[in-house]
Structure formats: C-alpha cells, structure tokens
Design a protein around this nucleic acid. Structure first.
Lengths: 126, 126
DNA sequence: CTTATATTTGCAACTTAGTTGTAATAACTA
DNA sequence: TAGTTATTACAACTAAGTTGCAAATATAAG
C-alpha cells in the first residue's frame, strides 16, 4: 500500500528528490529533514514511494540504503535495471544511464539484480 | 596486515570454507562457530583472510556481508569481478562463474564493482 | 462547515550487524 | 626456554533500521 494522502512529510521528501539529480541515502535525508520529520516517518514514506514506483532503492558499498527517482515512474521491472555509481571521494551516488545485460542463467529464475560501481566521479578524478 | 599466525580460529574458519562451494555470511559463521570463537575474532579473521586474497566479500540484498573462497588466491582485482547469486527460497548464495563486462565510463575512474542477482536457485526453481 | 474514520505521524524502546579498547593468552623467534 | 608480538575474549558501544501504539491529521461523507 503506497502513498494515499498528500502530507507534509511526503512533500518535503519529494522536494529533496526533485532538487537533485543524484541518489540520496536515508542517512542524508535524516540529516536534512530529521528536525522536521521523524526518522521512522522518513523510512516509512520512502518505502511507500518505492512501492508506488516513484523511487527505487539500492544498497551502497557500506550497506546503507540509497534512493533515487525512477525515470519511468512505474514499478521497477527487472528490465529497468541500471548500474549505480558511488564516488569514494565526494560520496556522490547516482544512476548510470546504461543498460546492463543480465546473464541468462540456466535452471534459475532471476527476480532482481543490482550492479554497483565504486570509483571516482567526473569531478573527483582529476 | 593479513594472517601471520596459524591459530585455531583461522583453521576453523578456513575449514568452513573448504567444506562448501557456496558463500557464507558472517551471520552464518557466527551461528556455526560462535560457541568456539568470539564474534569479534570471526570478523577480524575474515577481514584478514580477505586482505590475503584467500576470501573475497560482497553484500547481500539484506546488507549482510558474505564471504567466499577466491579461486585465484590473489588479491581481488577489478578484472576478477564475477556476479553473485542469492536464492530467495533457500538462502544459498554463491559465486557465478561468469565474466561481467564493466561498462567503460568516460571521465570516471572505476575501482570496484559488485553485481548481485536475486532469484531462485536450481534446486528451488521447480 | 462539521463530523467520522482511516491513514499517517512521533515517540520511545528495541533489534541487529558490526566495531573498539583493553587486558590476557598463545604463536613464533632467537 | 624466555621474550616478543600477534591474536583472542570480553564487554561495552555504534549506527541503521524496525516495531507498537497513542495522538494527530487528511480526506470523504453528511
């Protein structure tokens, strides 16, 4: 069950994602909004937005959950899978607009996959 | 600084990995060995074995750390990257012997990548 | 506009994976 | 065998995320 009511929490969170092209970690969102929204609410709204296909999530190398806007605004499909890039210098984490081939696995059913790349982003590589 | 002394903890942990083809989570290892080895020691030995290139690690979809034997027994190189498969039914998690093409990213330096696939394994797909 | 009701929120307490500091123990070296 | 130094256990801690519940509030109905 996703978002049903337009509340302040929902609007504040959506605004954060509208104001950026990159992914945002739960930690960062709690840092930014924790004084106005309780962290429990932040977690709950994020997962509802994910259910609604507004956001998608993935785990960073540190095991922290990250969220980013979905371009297609529909429930994430296996075919939508794109890699994510995490910069070790500035921390910026973003979706890569690249198609990844999920290997065909005989005798196995593939339900979800996650491809994450760690390195230095365009600004930090210098 | 990796493993320097052959201690009982090291041998017990290595035995677990020798007795299986699959990956093992820290949680599982603590369950199995927690009465004989303190969990702190388990964490420390595992990370030393990783430094030594005996094991490599990755994060499962739940954010829990998994370890598996390295085939090459050398420090993990970017080029060694292979995907991991995690079964949602039985929990079995294993290395896939498949080569993954890491996309070339202009203006970015790639240091590490992780590709994990979730689904049903050969035994659970039926 | 007011009321009813069901969703949403805040709070506090909890869970769990993993880490840190330190004193005691044990493996290796000379 | 003694000395050095890595390793271990223990307890206390950290940090991300979860749960239960009472209070607050968005929305629909009247």
């Amino acid at each position: 069950m996703g978002i049903i009511r337009k509340t302040e929490s929902v609007e504040l969170l959506l605004k954060e994602f509208h104001d950026t092209e990159t992914a945002l970690s739960t930690i960062e969102l709690i840092k930014r909004l924790g004084k106005r929204i309780n962290k429990t609410t932040i977690y709950r709204v994020l997962s509802k937005l994910e259910e609604d296909g507004v956001l998608h999530s993935f785990l960073g190398f540190d095991g922290v959950k990250w969220f980013a806007r979905c371009k297609s605004h529909t429930q994430v499909q296996i075919s939508d899978i794109h890699p994510h890039f995490q910069c070790i210098s500035c921390g910026k984490t973003e979706c890569l607009d690249i198609k990844v081939d999920i290997p065909k696995l005989v005798n196995r059913e593939v339900l979800l996959s996650q491809f994450i790349i760690k390195g230095k982003c365009n600004l930090c590589v210098a």
